[in-house]
C-alpha cells in the first residue's frame, strides 16, 4: 500500500502539473479539494478520472462519484487496490 500511495502521488503531481511538489509534500490523509490540502478544482477531478482509467483501468461514471474516491490520496489508494483491472 505504501508503494501504491507513493505511485499515485507521483502520477497526481504529473497529471495536475503540481509544480515543485514531491510525494513528501502531500499528506496521505489531507483533503485533495477545497481550501485546505491541495486545493484542487473541478477540472482536476476530471483529470483524476482520466488518471484512474489510464493507469488502473477504472472507469468512474461521474464527477460526483469521483468526489468520494478523491477525498485523499489514502482513500484513492484503497479504491485503486480494490477496483483496479490493470
Amino acid at each position: 500500500m505504501e508503494q501504491l500511495i507513493n505511485e499515485i502521488k507521483l502520477k497526481l503531481i504529473d497529471a495536475l502539473n503540481l509544480d515543485g511538489m514531491t510525494p513528501a509534500d502531500i499528506d496521505d490523509n489531507a483533503p485533495l479539494f477545497g481550501d485546505e490540502g491541495l486545493g484542487l478544482d473541478s477540472i482536476d477531478v476530471l483529470e483524476l478520472i482520466v488518471l484512474l482509467e489510464r493507469n488502473y483501468g477504472i472507469r468512474l461514471a461521474s464527477p460526483q462519484e469521483g468526489k468520494k474516491v478523491f477525498q485523499s490520496v489514502a482513500v484513492m489508494a484503497d479504491y485503486v487496490a480494490a477496483n483496479r483491472t490493470k
Binding site: 495536475l16 502539473n17 477540472i43 482536476d44 476530471l46 483529470e47 482520466v50 482509467e53 489510464r54
Partner: peptide
Amino acid sequence: REFPSPSLFV
C-alpha cells in the same frame, strides 16, 4: 485517441 485530457481541452 486514447484518453482525451479535460485539462488540455479547456
